[in-house]
Amino acid sequence: MCFSFALTCTDGRARAGVLHTPHGAVRTPVFMPVGTQATVKAIPPRDLEELGAQIILANTYHLYLRPGDELIARRGGLHRFMSWPHPILTDSGGFQVFSLSEMRKIDDDGVTFKSHLDGSMHRFTPEKSIRIQENLGADIIMCFDECPPPTDREYNAIALARTHAWAVRCREAHTRTDQALFGIAQGGIFRDLREQSARFLTSLDFPGYAIGGLAVGEEKADMFQVIAWMDDALPAHKPRYLMGVGEPTDLIRAVQRGVDMADCVLPTRLARHGAAFTRDGRINMRNRIYAEDERPIDPECDCYTCRNFSRAYIRHLLQAGEILGLYLMSVHNIAFLLNLMRAAREAIVQQRFAAFAQNWLARYERTENPTHL
């Protein structure tokens, strides 16, 4: 088989496993850096390898518009196009299309939308999303789904029926045996809808399942409740992928509730705004208090940035608008989340995850820390 998942260890609800893909194995739980346009912003593939990234994401919507999925197919697919020989996951384009709001129209067959680049008209159907993702050639691809507002029950019920019908069509359209197609569970913050979605998608026997429609404005307590429901409802022997979550505390709490995979643009987005992760919370590297600070961003981090550069120097780069500052910040933030998930996996394997999570969260969330934002 080109794709398989082995659950190797559990500690409470937390899980450690191994995903086997055509481009290598992925040890879970894992954070997946996002390379929206076939690049993780500011970080070359060489550096991602050095950081220990096992799998990265690319975006169907953006790559369809530019440079075009057929062009990428002619260049040998995403792995060759972006010089990344390791596993890749592509989303379906659904979230981006539905986030266009006034620029799209939904019907039961698909979505018609305007390009955010030039206003040209386009249409995505489940079949077209699959065709684009097959052209891109990622190891894991996603069903085309509708991502509705999480607290609107009436609309979630309508969107769920559409998402399920589209999942069937995606499964029928999928032809490449070297790609794993994941279903996406929707249903907002409503338990019966979420469980209905899990039952339906499980009946289609996808090789993995994503939890979609979260981290889009709902309360954190609601998000974690939904994740816990999904841990009970989704099959234990298949991977669970939480879409669009990257805050360190959210990752720990998601792993506590049975999540295996997560992705988010947050680490590089925060880096571009001068914010850095540390074990004592998030800090603003543009703050004047770091102007003569000789410490690394995080004294306990072993990334290239923290091994070689001071807070004072990085603040100078950011204040001067130097590109190197964005690169060094991005390297650190990505490294921080990758290291966090590796540490979580080690704690699960050693049967000490509960203590690890409690201690890690207590330190990160201390509000009395003078550098905490």
Rank of each mutant, 00 (worst) to 15 (best):
F3W: 10
T8E: 14
T10C: 13
F31D: 04
Q37D: 04
V40N: 00
I43H: 13
E49P: 00
G52Y: 13
Q54F: 01
L63H: 09
I72V: 15
G77V: 04
L78Y: 00
L78E: 09
F81L: 05
V97W: 02
L100V: 06
F113T: 05
R123A: 07
F124E: 08
K128W: 05
I130V: 11
I132S: 07
Q133D: 04
Q133G: 03
A138V: 02
D139F: 08
I141K: 12
C143Q: 12
Y155S: 06
Y155R: 12
Y155C: 07
L160M: 12
H164G: 08
H164K: 14
H164P: 09
V168E: 15
R176F: 07
F182Y: 14
I189C: 15
Q196T: 09
L201I: 08
S203V: 12
S203M: 09
F206Q: 00
G212V: 01
G217Y: 13
D222P: 04
M230C: 11
K238A: 09
L242N: 04
L242M: 03
V245C: 01
P248A: 05
P248R: 02
D250T: 00
A254L: 00
M261D: 03
I283N: 01
E294Q: 15
P296Y: 08
E300H: 00
Y313K: 02
S330T: 13
S330A: 10
N333C: 07
F336Q: 12
L338F: 06
L340H: 12
R342W: 08
R345M: 06
R345N: 10
Q351C: 10
L361N: 13
R363I: 03
E365Y: 10
E365P: 10
R366S: 08
P370V: 01
